[in-house]
Nucleic acid binder design. Structure first.
Lengths: 150, 150
DNA sequence: TTCCTTGCAAACGATTTGCATTGGA
DNA sequence: TCCAATGCAAATCGTTTGCAAGGAA
């Protein structure tokens, strides 16, 4: 399975990628990447802001936007419509999400190669029959997490 | 595959479901359900409002909220974060989405029973290994639609 | 020096809500 | 009749943006 660069190399990778686009890898942006690296699952701007009070919200949003446009982070939207950000798959490895229907928590999950192959096949046939050129796939498994099941 | 009631029976089904919750099936709500029935893929409030000018936006949102809470429509959020609504699966049958990475269009796709079984198995194992009680699954296939590929 | 980036405050826009009125069972 | 539903306008709130100051190459 395609895991990304190891954690210690992520900053270098990101810096390189930004450089080729004429974008600076400033300390604020490093802080954001660092925070995303330390957690699991997509984070809202508010979540991140709580962890890194040094970066004001507006700058945080601006950084996340640039990082998204540069393919370094990926923006999702949770069930409530809140924007949530996570490192792109080339940095973390391909993975899927398990979403708790009750509390909304999202956790990352990696599938074994065999299963992933099956999904690829399914995705390809779906894309084909709809006349789409396949780009990727996202499997979201919904359920009730252990804390909500108590 | 579990298809829902036929189109002509949907209003009756919806009315029945709402009644058990002490919610009225008013003409405005009928209009909304009718509009959702006529299109394919999740619609934004603005989309719906364009089709049914008779229902003011605020009422539209209120109806969609009630219908969502009653399990009659389901709310999603597209790549831009806009809320999009579609009839619940017990009314339309279980299906998945193909999303165009370029224009954001979302189309419904139904898989054959065999493939669906495979997905169920995958979803169950994912939920299990994450300690979740399985609720359902969503496969989103991303690609480039034919019009964007020109 | 030259742009890109940052901070703050103000602006935006989708969605929600208060309140008086209307309408369905 | 009686309470839920509606419409309008005002309020929310996550997110974006203008502009002047700060910082990296």
């Amino acid at each position: 399975m395609a895991r990304g660069p190891r954690p210690s190399e992520i900053h270098a990778e990101v810096g390189r990628r930004l450089a080729t686009r004429g974008v600076r890898y400033t300390s604020g942006r490093r802080t954001v990447i660092g925070a995303l690296q330390r957690v699991s699952g997509p984070q809202s701007a508010a979540d991140l802001h709580k962890r890194i009070r040094s970066v004001p919200l507006s700058s945080l949003y601006r950084s996340l936007t640039v990082l998204d446009e540069s393919g370094i982070v990926r923006r999702h939207h949770d069930a409530v419509g809140l924007a949530r950000f996570e490192l792109a798959e080339w940095l973390t490895g391909h993975h899927h999400h398990v979403v708790c229907i009750d509390c909304g928590t999202v956790e990352d999950v990696e599938l074994d190669a065999a299963t992933e192959t099956v999904l690829d096949t399914v995705a390809a046939s779906v894309a084909g029959s709809a006349g789409y050129e396949l780009g990727g796939h996202v499997l979201e498994v919904e359920g009730v997490c252990s804390s909500c099941r108590v």
